[in-house]
């Protein structure tokens, strides 16, 4: 069982959260010329890192906010959590 520290609610069990995937993926900006490759990278291509991985989780059975979590994908250790609006440093 993972324990995730929601930046809004504090430490909660994994059961309250749902997963939203890689948080480092950026949607191409609106109104700009975008290549097919940019779209592919946004929609499909993923690094799927082994080790430290920034990812989105939603505190679905809690405050319902999306948050960013830095987790190790091979040990499940969680290093850091941020509000969705906070930038990954």
């Amino acid at each position: 069982m993972l324990h995730i520290k929601c930046p809004h609610c504090g430490m909660r069990s994994q059961n309250e959260f749902s997963y939203g995937g890689d948080a480092s993926v950026k949607r191409p900006e609106l109104g700009k010329e975008i290549s097919d490759q940019d779209w592919d990278n946004f929609v499909y291509n993923r690094k799927s890192l082994r080790g430290k991985h920034w990812e989105l989780w939603q505190h679905l059975s809690g405050c319902r906010q999306w948050i960013k979590v830095e987790r190790d994908t091979s040990t499940h250790e969680i290093f850091n959590t941020l509000k969705a609006t906070e930038e990954i440093s």
Partner: peptide
């Protein structure tokens, strides 16, 4: 399990 993992072992939920 529902989130990226290279752990080769599972989680209870």
């Amino acid at each position: 399990d529902g989130y990226n993992s290279y752990a080769q072992r599972g989680n209870l939920p």
